[in-house]
């Protein structure tokens, strides 16, 4: 494998590191899956929060002037 520049060498080193660790294909798939899992988890948490009525609690706090924010705390 011929490296054209330093950047390619760096990326290649990273690839080899990942291959040693878990196999590059697995890493790619896992990385993307992890993003989806995180987003899905976030959506579930958001939904759970809505069902628990947390949006109302947020609103009840946010419609009052926060004295701590102003520096009166």
């Amino acid at each position: 494998m011929q490296y054209n520049n330093e950047a390619q060498r760096r990326v290649q080193r990273t690839r080899k590191g990942l291959l040693k660790f878990c196999g590059a294909e697995v890493c790619i798939v896992m990385s993307r899956r992890l993003s989806f899992v995180l987003i899905l988890t976030g959506l579930l948490m958001f939904g759970l929060g809505l069902m628990r009525g947390e949006a109302l609690l947020v609103m009840q706090k946010a419609v009052r002037i926060c004295l701590e924010c102003i520096g009166l705390g």
């Binding site: 995180l38 987003i39 976030g42 929060g49 809505l50 628990r52 609690l57």
Partner: peptide, 17 residues
């Protein structure tokens, strides 16, 4: 002392994306 899943979920979706 309630942890807000509503806010944490929103931030996780935005951060994860």
């Amino acid at each position: 002392h309630q942890f807000s899943f509503y806010i944490a979920g929103l931030l996780t979706v935005v951060g994860g994306a």
